[in-house]
Design a binder for these strands. Structure first.
Lengths: 215, 215
DNA sequence: GTATGATCTAGGCACTGCCTACATTGCAGG
DNA sequence: CCTGCAATGTAGGCAGTGCCTAGATCATAC
């Protein structure tokens, strides 16, 4: 019932990592944080619930009361990730003035989120690793997607109204923008971009790529 | 489905899948093919060497003589994948006339390869799952990457010569093209593109997106 | 024809996810 | 206060996994 639900509202009191009480205090959050660290270290494939439990000093079956299975943990991470992506892009957009600059900022925000939250990003787009129909995940994903869509809309909205059939063309524009940002982020995270390309930092590289209207 | 790499010079005679001999005949290829099928079915994370061995009717330690570990199997799949990607893009380019059309064709070829070889593609860009410094993998990857680079070069090559410092800008152009193709392929494979967007097929969608010079 | 290396089999070990059974704790309602 | 009860924690079992070593079988060069 209360296993895989919305994750961040409970203002549970944080406990010292060295617990002397029977109950941990915030095992759910602790597991999610430890999982992110483990993913960043070894990749999502070699994350083990038992290992995480060992690191946190709890029994191997403790997580079962917070995440029914491995998939549930990854799903929670992905949902939180899309929330973070949403926030990161919104923040970047809010700091820009013109529609064109806002779209560029959204793209850069996307890439920067991926760079700063590589572990999260790795989980978010592996449908086989998570429960894709989870409602919390679905809404978080839609919220994030809408930000980019609105940035495109603000820039090319007029085109959408001009002719009816170009609504499809508008969607292609959005998908195009999403693809550039997602592709750059993925290629960088996978190590497929030569070091000299991002010598000035991935943020500088993405800035160069998102410069100009058409990308 | 092209698991056949050029590195398999050994002219081993193929045996019927139902073997009554002690030796299998071509276990290495059989494992790679079975692995691709398993990845397509359950995702790369839940591929088990022992399960593959069971499917092929050999003992659980048979693969050890062809792949020292799980990573080696994935690495071989990825190398074969980059060879296939290289071939797919080259073929698409060869069928086009103008430089602009060739670049578009390369992008579409990239996406189509990903769509037709989803299992392969899933492995190719998971560095944590494979031995990234493997020489066969590295050269295969470089070969594939060069195809796209040359397509850009044929279209924008003059810009590169105009000013010296715009060599960097040229590289950004290549990376941009790669990002669009890779992003579209990844998003589609991850199920992040609404069904109505690719109702006409992913090939039609990619064609729409790669239309025009600047992408 | 036989030595030799390549290939395949068999069993063991530590680890994993998930299961059931049980212990401890916090907390509301008498 | 105290007493049930749900939430949260522990302990052990089971089948499955990757990787290891030891041994069996085959193909082929000499």
């Amino acid at each position: 019932m209360s296993t895989a639900k919305l994750n961040s509202q409970k203002p549970k009191r944080k406990r010292a990592p060295r617990r002397n009480t029977y109950h941990h205090g915030d095992l759910r959050e602790a597991f999610m944080a430890a999982a992110l660290a483990a993913i960043a270290r070894d990749g999502v494939a070699s994350v083990s619930l038992r290992q995480l439990a060992r690191e946190l000093g709890v029994s191997h079956s403790a997580p079962a009361h917070h995440f029914p299975d491995r998939i549930a943990l990854f799903t929670a991470l992905a949902a939180a990730g899309f929330d973070g992506l949403h926030a990161r892009m919104s923040q970047a957009i809010a700091a820009s003035n013109t529609p064109a600059a806002r779209l560029s900022a959204a793209g850069q925000g996307y890439v920067m989120f991926a760079a700063e939250n590589a572990a999260c990003f790795e989980v978010m787009f592996h449908p086989k690793l998570l429960r894709n129909d989870d409602p919390a995940l679905a809404t978080a994903r839609d919220n994030a997607s809408r930000v980019l869509q609105e940035a495109i809309s603000a820039l090319h909205g007029d085109k959408r109204d001009k002719r009816k059939k170009s609504a499809q063309a508008f969607d292609v524009l959005t998908l195009h923008a999403w693809s550039v940002a997602h592709g750059l982020a993925s290629l960088w995270l996978a190590g497929n971009i030569t070091q000299e390309m991002w010598a000035d930092g991935i943020d500088e590289l993405s800035k160069r790529m998102f410069r100009g209207e058409g990308w």
